Structure formats: structure tokens, C-alpha cells
Amino acid sequence: MLKHLLPAGLCCLLLGWSLPAPAQVENSELGELTLEVLVGGLEHPWGLAFLPDGQGSLISERPGRLRWLDGQGRLSAPLRGVPAVFAQGQGGLLDVALSPDFARDRLVYLSYAESDASGERAGTAVGRGRLSDDQLALEGFAVIFRQQPKLSTGIHFGSRLVFDRQGLLFITLGENGQRAAAQQLDKLQGKLVRLHADGRIPADNPFAARAGTRGEIWSYGHRNAQGAALNPWSGQLWLHEHGPRGGDEINIPLAGRNYGWPLATHGVNYSFLPIPEARGERVAGTEPPHHVWEKSPALSGMAFYSAERFPAWRHNLFIGALAGQALIRLQLDGDRVVHEERLLAERGWRIRDVRQGPDGYLYLLTDEADGKLLRLGLRQP
């Protein structure tokens, strides 16, 4: 196993990466932040999952690699057994999540862009495989879900993976750039889907028994949700999604509800022209956003802070910003967003994923050709 792992600093030297930076200090409204660059040289990292018992973490890279960062900071070679991906545009290997029963079954779930037979169109797929005992391979990888039909030429795949308290799997699905499909219940574009851990459709899904609809659907009218997390206090799933030019939003999706896209939006096309199908910011029969940004930060990744380590962060929600190049801190009062702060705004980093670590620190991935894993803390008074 050791030949597959190198200390992070030695990896950097051998592969031409820059060495991890020492801890730095930045200011925030709640006090001084401590910032460490743990690993560099990751190629457009997308998702992060922590293994139990100090075994490190798994990091996905969009070109199609899954890496193990062990508990001593050594980065593995790409794991074997990872599926081939459609690595074009926004597509590739995307999110990574552990089975709720990982201690027993060692199953790792991956979401990724998968091409059709022609190689020209793609959609989101989700599969799972057993992490080998040496953490260097996925064994018996099998697909449990495919977005159908395949309509993307390289944009809007979603695709965050979240298990709820009952062990059911939520998957966020972009509309593949096909706006009208987000309102069509016979298609899986622009939907949030809910499945059993093996891919079966729960009998109580809102459209499971309705003819002409996809039983996987939990909610619809979503544009491109690249952040989702379970609220640790209420147990409800929250997600955020990209608007077009303006109108990024947070939603708390309820069963069978329509979240509006493209009929209801606070944004316009990138050309500054109106969205052709849009009828306004609020439209009868659709749910208004729980929270909205009139100017799009381009949201990605989401983590509620519930740890004891930094009490000032408790009941805050942290979200990455790609175009906004910042970490957004939202202060919550119950479910209400009462305050916003932008952190790391001078760094110029596109924040792709945000996770609360088992040690109570925040861990961030930067979406760059020389992507980084960062650890963020708050100095105690």
C-alpha cells in the first residue's frame, strides 16, 4: 500500500505542485479565521467525503479520478474501479458519499456524467461500489440510477448526493440546459429524486403511483442544484441552485412541489434578455424560493455547522461561491436567513465543495486546475 501513498509535501515536490502553505490568519465578523492549505495539485476537485475512525477522506476530481487522502495527509494514486465518465464541459466525476451503513457495508456512492451510445449527449448517473480494505479500489461498482433521457451536451448535471435520517438517497439533477424539461414529469431533468439506497423507488414518493410520470421524482422545477445538505436540527433537506444571470436560490423541497424553473425566476438570460418561458418572480402553482440572491454568486457545496468546536458558527450555513469566489456564511434563526457574510473573498478561489469535518473544522475544495483542499477554523476568544 505504501507505494501508492506519498506524504503531501513529497507529492508536491515530485509532481511539481506547490507545497502546502502554513496556517494563515484572516479576519471575519466573528473573529480571526485560521486557514490551512492541506493538499494542492488536485485537478478540479468536486466532492469530499470523510471516512470514519480517522481513516482520512475521499476526494473526487472532475476528469474522472477518485483519491484517498489518508489520516496522515498522504494522497493516493487514483483508485481503481471508478467508472468511465463524460468529462466534457461541466461533466465528469462529481459527488461522493458514504453509505449510512458504511461501517458494515463499506459502500461508496458516486455521481457522474455518463454519455449515451453516441458519446454526444450525457446525463447524470449514480452508482456504488465497496471500498477495498486498503482504501485503494472500489470493488463491484454498479449503477443504481440513470437520468433519462440523456440531453446534456456538457452543462447542468446537478448532482449532490444526500442520505436522509431514514437512509433514503436524494440526488439533485440539473435540467441539462433544456429549460422546458424541468416542468415535464416524464423526464428526469431539473428534478430532485429520492430513492432507496439500492436504487429502488420508495412507494411513498409523490409520483410513484401516477401514470406517465417518473416515480423517482420528489420535487421539480429546479435549474441546476449543486449544493444540498440535511438540516441537522429539523432533518429536512435543503438545496441551493444556480439561477441564470441572477436568481440563485435556496429551497427546502417538499414532496411533489414545483419550484418554478423556468416559469418563475429572479434572473434573466446571460444575454440580458428575458427567459422566454418566464412569467415573473412569483407564479401561481409554484413555490417561491426560501432565500434568493438577485446577483448570482454561482453557488456550489453546502454545509450546516453543528459542531461544538466553534460555538460562534453554530446555526450557520456555509455555501461555496464559484463566480463570487468566496465562502458565504449565512446566519440562521430557525430556518430564516438573518445575516450574510462573505469569507475568503480576496483569495480568488472558486469554492466547489464545503463540508464540516469530524474535528469541527470546515473543509473546502477549490475548483481549479491546481485545486486545493483547505481547512478553515475560528480562533477562540
Rank of each mutant, 00 (worst) to 15 (best):
V37M: 12
A97G: 03
L94C: 04
G71I: 05
Q380P: 00
G371Y: 07
I328A: 02
G167K: 11
R67Y: 14
W46I: 08
G334R: 15
V126F: 06
D359S: 06
P45Y: 08
S60M: 00
G56K: 06
I171N: 09
I144V: 15
R80I: 05
G246Y: 14
R146E: 11
R194C: 10
R309S: 01
G377S: 03
P297F: 12
R214L: 08
W17P: 04
G221L: 10
R74N: 11
G212D: 05
L151K: 11
P22K: 14
E36K: 14
I351W: 02
I351S: 03
A326T: 04
P20V: 04
P149K: 03
E341Q: 13
V25T: 14
H156E: 14
N176P: 01
L69P: 01
F170T: 10
L344Y: 06
R165A: 13
L327P: 09
L173G: 10
G360L: 13
A307C: 03
T265M: 13
F141M: 09
Q24Y: 07
A122M: 01
A255K: 15
A225W: 03
S219K: 06
N231Q: 09
R347Q: 14
N251T: 00
P381A: 07
T153K: 15
A298V: 05
L110A: 06
G371W: 09
L15G: 02
G177T: 01
F86N: 02
A278R: 07
L378E: 01
G256Q: 04
K150D: 05
W17Q: 15
V193G: 07
L38G: 05
P149A: 00
G320C: 06
V96C: 07
R329N: 04
L151H: 01
A23Y: 00
T124N: 11
E114I: 06
S159K: 05
Q88S: 02
S111P: 05
A203V: 07
A345D: 08
D335C: 01
Q166C: 08
H290F: 11
A97D: 01
K295F: 06
G41E: 00
E114Y: 10
Q226H: 00
D186C: 08
P311C: 14
E43N: 15
E294W: 12
V338P: 07
H291L: 05
L138W: 12
E294V: 03
G301T: 08
L30I: 02
R350Q: 09
Q55N: 14
L79Y: 13
A180Y: 11
L48K: 10
I252H: 07
H240N: 14
W349H: 08
V193S: 10
R146W: 02
R336Y: 05
N258H: 08
L188A: 11
E340S: 13
